[in-house]
Amino acid sequence: MQIFVKTLTGKTITLEVEPSDTIENVKAKIQDKEGIPPDQQRSIFAGKQLEDGRTLSDYNIQKESTLHLVLR
């Protein structure tokens, strides 16, 4: 499925993911596309910070959902 990741600069990245993917996985995909190390990424969805060990389905993130990426 496709999800979108919006950065603070307003750029939107499209990722191909599975509901079973962990947040860690997703951060690795963002690193592949953007070169941002996962330890600098904070992902926010529906106002909640997403934890690395959880999966997209844990957070009820579905296709075409938009995550927000904040850098630390």
Rank of each mutant, 00 (worst) to 15 (best):
L71G: 08
E24M: 12
D52G: 06
G53M: 10
D21I: 05
H68C: 09
V26Y: 05
R42F: 15
G35T: 02
L67Y: 00
T55D: 01
L56E: 01
I36H: 08
P37R: 10
G47S: 05
T9S: 13
K33T: 10
F45N: 03
A28M: 14
Q49N: 11
G47Q: 05
L67T: 00
K33M: 13
V17K: 00
D39L: 10
E16S: 11
D58K: 00
T12V: 14
V5Q: 00
K11Q: 08
E18C: 10
L15C: 02
R54E: 03
Q40N: 10
F4D: 00
T66H: 14
R72G: 09
S57E: 11
I61T: 01
P38Q: 13
V26E: 01
N25F: 12
G47R: 03
I30S: 03
L15P: 00
K29L: 10
E34V: 15
D58A: 04
Q49R: 11
Q49V: 15
D52V: 05
A46Y: 15
G47E: 07
D21K: 00
K6Q: 08
Q49S: 10
R42M: 15
S20G: 10
V5Y: 03
P37N: 09
E64H: 14
E51F: 07
D39Q: 10
I36D: 06
V70L: 11
L15Y: 01
S43E: 09
T9R: 11
Q41H: 10
F45P: 02
R42A: 14
I44P: 02
K11M: 09
Q40A: 10
A46E: 14
K48C: 10
T14H: 05
S57N: 09
K33D: 07
L15A: 01
E34M: 15
A28W: 13
G35F: 05
K27A: 07
G53N: 13
L69R: 00
N25D: 11
Q2C: 10
G10D: 03
R42E: 13
L8M: 13
T9F: 13
E64A: 10
I3V: 05
L69S: 02
P38I: 15
G10C: 07
I44V: 10
I23D: 01
F45R: 04
S20R: 08
I3Q: 00
Q2T: 14
K63Y: 06
K6D: 02
G53L: 08
T55P: 10
H68N: 06
D21T: 08
V17L: 03
G35K: 06
G53T: 10
G47C: 10
L71V: 11
I3T: 00
I3Y: 01
S57Q: 12
L50I: 04
K29D: 02
A28Y: 12
E16A: 08
K48G: 07
T14L: 09
T12S: 05
